[in-house]
């Protein structure tokens, strides 16, 4: 079972940003790995939204409360300020309406933790420059990263939406660099993935 798997580094990093006993919504919670971790380590009141009924079923069997649905259309089931923290882990670039989804998260919870692939990473910049092809594991037309963005793009959008960037952490080869509140240029150049801690202002 999932319990025996090793805990993902980004999950551990996210957990450091979640207050003890918080009400947490994990959007795109998969089989509930992160929620289970937050439940056992931070004693949170954990809820999830997950598109795959099979994954949601696995999360149910772990005693988690999960609603099967699509973040693009089903976040409306959650009430205003129903949560303290909303988490969107490696999913925002796959959303059809990323702005709407971010606005919905900000409606549901005052604090958000959003992680995503950083297309500003220098290897990806060089890859595009030298190969003339979009960087990524998959073809540009596959499902997956529908909205490729850099860390700078995402932070600009967050600011436009009135969200404060509380902290950001780079992640590289499944290792998290620790949260800090400065050095965007370095982060945008060097981070494979980025975890943002955002707050409604």
């Amino acid at each position: 079972m999932a319990e025996t798997q090793s805990i993902r580094a980004d999950h551990l990093a996210i957990a450091t940003r979640v207050p003890e006993g918080a009400r947490v919504l994990d959007v795109g919670c998969g089989n509930g790995d992160l929620l289970a971790l937050l439940q056992s380590e931070k004693h949170v009141n954990a809820r999830g939204l997950e598109l795959s009924a099979a994954d949601a079923g696995v999360a149910l069997a772990r005693g988690l409360s999960v609603i099967q649905g699509d973040a693009d259309s089903d976040l409306g089931v959650f009430p205003d300020n129903g949560f303290d923290v909303a988490i969107l882990s490696k999913a925002i670039q796959q959303m059809r309406r990323p702005v709407f989804v971010l606005q919905e998260l900000a409606r549901i919870a005052p604090e958000m933790i959003v992680s995503f692939r950083n297309f500003g990473l220098w290897q990806r910049r060089i890859s595009l420059m030298t190969s003339g092809r979009m960087p990524g594991h998959r073809a540009w037309h596959d499902e997956g990263a529908l909205h490729p963005s850099t860390a700078r793009d995402m932070i600009e959008l967050s600011t436009e939406l009135g969200l404060e960037v509380v902290a950001m952490a780079p992640m590289h080869r499944n290792r998290v660099g620790g949260f800090r509140d400065a050095g965007l240029s370095r982060l945008n150049w060097g981070a494979d993935e980025v975890i943002l801690h955002l707050r409604r202002t």
Binding site: A53, A56, G57, L60, L64, S65, V66, I67, Q68, G69, D74, G76, V77, F78, P79, G82
Partner: peptide, 21 residues
């Protein structure tokens, strides 16, 4: 069922919901 789920979530209830294909 989704309307019931929404109402339960709004009421703060512990609710899970699966739409089976």
């Amino acid at each position: 069922s989704r309307e019931i789920t929404r109402a339960l979530a709004a009421a703060g209830a512990e609710v899970s919901y699966l739409e089976i294909e």
